[in-house]
């Protein structure tokens, strides 16, 4: 299926022709066409009536208030990525096992895939996009760069948000302690030595 090959010739071609659009917008368009073509086989038919909306849900994300009308099924992760277009927060396993979707919810680190947005009316949420201040990276972001705390980068937003939580909780005293308290974030490139060094360094500077 085309939707599984974001770097197909079509996508590249369209990107070249539409310089003004973001890569994501183009991929969404191309994926949408492919998904439409595949719809008759991919669609699962439910006997239940469509879900009623939850009514207004207010979320303050990176300091910015939003009022949303949501399907109750939508995870906080999906609302961040799909509705608010904050795609820095990653969807890895979508079952709470990898930590790629970690955000701060009322200052606590949580996996945003295993909670419903509708359960958090009035909540303050901080994502990777909200860390930069006045054009400066957050100290932990800087530490990840300095200590090579990443390779492919997919897990990095989750690692950094979790690292901020880890430091704030006071669990970044030693490398062993950091490894234990960061174990909810998986890095399949194996950048763990750099991640531990980055968290330790930022904790010292905090």
């Amino acid at each position: 299926m085309k939707s599984e090959k974001p770097f197909s010739d079509d996508a590249v071609q369209i990107e070249q022709n539409c310089g003004g659009l973001s890569r994501r917008a183009i991929l969404l368009t191309v994926g949408g066409v492919a998904a439409l073509a595949a719809a008759p086989t991919a669609q699962s038919i439910s006997e239940r009536p469509p879900t009623a909306s939850t009514g207004r849900v207010r979320l303050v994300v990176n300091g910015k208030p939003h009022e949303l009308d949501l399907d109750p099924r939508r995870s906080l992760l999906d609302v961040l990525r799909e509705t608010l277009d904050l795609t820095g927060t990653k969807k890895g396993c979508n079952q709470g096992a990898c930590g790629a979707c970690t955000v701060l919810l009322n200052d606590r680190r949580v996996v945003s895939c295993l909670t419903l947005a509708a359960m958090h009316d009035g909540a303050q949420i901080r994502t990777i996009e909200g860390l930069e201040a006045n054009g400066e990276l957050h100290p932990l972001q800087t530490a990840f760069v300095e200590h090579d705390g990443l390779q492919c980068g997919f897990c990095t937003p989750g690692q950094i948000m979790s690292g901020i939580g880890c430091i704030a909780e006071g669990h970044a005293g030693t490398p062993d302690e950091i490894r234990f308290w960061m174990s909810g974030n998986i890095c399949r490139c194996g950048a763990y030595p750099g991640i531990v060094a980055a968290v330790a360094d930022a904790a010292k500077r905090a």
Partner: peptide, 8 residues
């Protein structure tokens, strides 16, 4: 569990 899940 993990620190994130223990917060939840």
């Amino acid at each position: 569990a993990s620190p994130q899940l223990r917060n939840m």
